[in-house]
Structure formats: structure tokens, C-alpha cells
């Protein structure tokens, strides 16, 4: 980039800063809502996959395989372009949150199912020996221990979900990628704009990761897994 090119880019960047901030907030909103929905879907499908009733278990397995086995990109396009043809029109942002929630929720369901299964059966037996029923055992004994196992894989999924949010710009949502792309178009500073975009996603991912790491440390300290005070 020439000296004057840099000056143009920086002055345009200054002017675009409010729009970029807005785009960042949209990205964070989509990540937060998508993750919240994914968490709900993960627990619903993950617990259903452990049901004693074959139809419930089967339906959950099928839903997980279907959602994991089809591309997020296609799911989003389907919600945005195909659903209106069937008479249901959703806001573009709602399409995004729904697609992220269902897709990452399906991956999360495997995390929930696997983490619960990884809690030793002896813990359930001890709870039975204390007269605890199935609901109490799950809520008070198994889930609190499974939770510590869920946090690290959930952290990965959360960061993957963040990195999937640029798909929103393909369905007219003015997210961070959309705004930076506008900056790139206005200045022609492709390398600088996309470098800035990389850095911004990296910073958000690092913050989310740090938050999840704190949750993980707390969960493990509670289980007495790592040293320190207890």
C-alpha cells in the first residue's frame, strides 16, 4: 500500500469505526444467541439420546445425525431462501441464530451425552443407595460432575460458532465481516481490511476462550481435580 493509500485507509477506517463497532456487536449478538440456543438444543438432544425409550432415543440420534451431517452453510441458505417459499419468513438474524443453534447444538448434544456417560456408574449407584430417584441423581450428582467434562469441548464449539458467524453477511446481516468488507470496497485496501478482520476475530475468540478457561478451572477445582485450595 502506498503512503497516500495508507492515509486513505486510515481516514476511512476512522469514519467507519461506528459501523464496524455496530458490526462487532451484531457478531457478538449472533454468537451469544446462537450459543444460548445451541446449549438448549445440546441438553435437549443429549439427554433425549440417553432416554430409556427407544423412540425418544432414536429421534434424538436421527436429529443429531441430520443436523451434523448437513452443511451449516446449506442449512442457513435453506432457512433464508427456501423457507419463505413454503410461507415462513424469518428475519435474517433469526435465520442465523436458528442455524447456528441447531447445528452447534447437535455437536453439543454429543458433548452432553458423552460427558454424562463418562461420569462413573459408581456415582449413580451411590446415589441409588441413598434413595435418590432418577431426576435427583441426574440433577444433583451426575450433571454437576459431567459439567466439568463439558466445558473444554464447549469452549471449542463456542469459538467455532464465532468463526461461523461471517456466514451472516451472505444473508444480508450487517455483521463484522459485512462492515469490514464495506471498508475494503470503499478503500481498496484489501490486505489491510482483511488483516484487521483476522485480528478482530482473533481478539474476540481469545476473550471467549479466556472466559471458558476460567469456568473450566472453577469446575475442576470444585471436583478437586487440580491442586490449590480446597
Amino acid at each position: 500500500m502506498t503512503g497516500s493509500g495508507t492515509a486513505v485507509f486510515l481516514s476511512e477506517l476512522g469514519r467507519a469505526l461506528p459501523a464496524i463497532t455496530e458490526g462487532l456487536l451484531v457478531t457478538l449478538e449472533a454468537t451469544g444467541l446462537g450459543a444460548a440456543l445451541a446449549l438448549l438444543v445440546a441438553f435437549a438432544l443429549g439427554l433425549a439420546a440417553r432416554s430409556r425409550l427407544l423412540p425418544v432415543r432414536g429421534a434424538a440420534r436421527f436429529a443429531v445425525e441430520l443436523l451434523r451431517g448437513t452443511s451449516l452453510y446449506v442449512q442457513l441458505f435453506w432457512l433464508f431462501f427456501a423457507l419463505p417459499m413454503l410461507g415462513f419468513r424469518l428475519e435474517p438474524m433469526a435465520c442465523g441464530v436458528l442455524a447456528f443453534g441447531l447445528n452447534y447444538g447437535a455437536y453439543g448434544a454429543e458433548v452432553v451425552r458423552g460427558s454424562i456417560a463418562a461420569v462413573p456408574a459408581a456415582q449413580t449407584e451411590a446415589a441409588i443407595a441413598l434413595g435418590m430417584g432418577p431426576g435427583l441423581r441426574l440433577r444433583r450428582i451426575v450433571l454437576p460432575q459431567a459439567y466439568a467434562l463439558m466445558v473444554p469441548p464447549f469452549k471449542n464449539l463456542l469459538i467455532q460458532l464465532l468463526k461461523a458467524t461471517p456466514l451472516l453477511s451472505l444473508v444480508t446481516v450487517a455483521d463484522l465481516t459485512f462492515r469490514i468488507d464495506q471498508l475494503r470496497a470503499a478503500t481498496g485496501g484489501t490486505a489491510a481490511a482483511y488483516l484487521l478482520l483476522l485480528l478482530l476475530y482473533f481478539c474476540v475468540a481469545a476473550l471467549l476462550g479466556a472466559g471458558m478457561n476460567a469456568l473450566e478451572r472453577r469446575a475442576q477445582a470444585r471436583l478437586g481435580v487440580v491442586g490449590g485450595d480446597a
Binding site: 434413595g131 435418590m132 430417584g133 450428582i141 460432575q145
Partner: peptide
């Protein structure tokens, strides 16, 4: 193998069932 609940303190291990079952 004892099977104490690792997410609960010693006291909470003993109070858990009396509180929530009884």
C-alpha cells in the same frame, strides 16, 4: 471404593440425601 461425591464437601456428602430425599 467409597464412591463419595467429588463435587461436594464432606458435610454436603452426608446432608445431600437427607435434604433432597427425606
Amino acid at each position: 471404593q467409597f464412591n463419595l461425591f467429588p463435587h461436594l464437601s464432606v458435610l454436603a456428602n452426608v446432608t445431600e440425601a437427607p435434604r433432597h430425599v427425606l
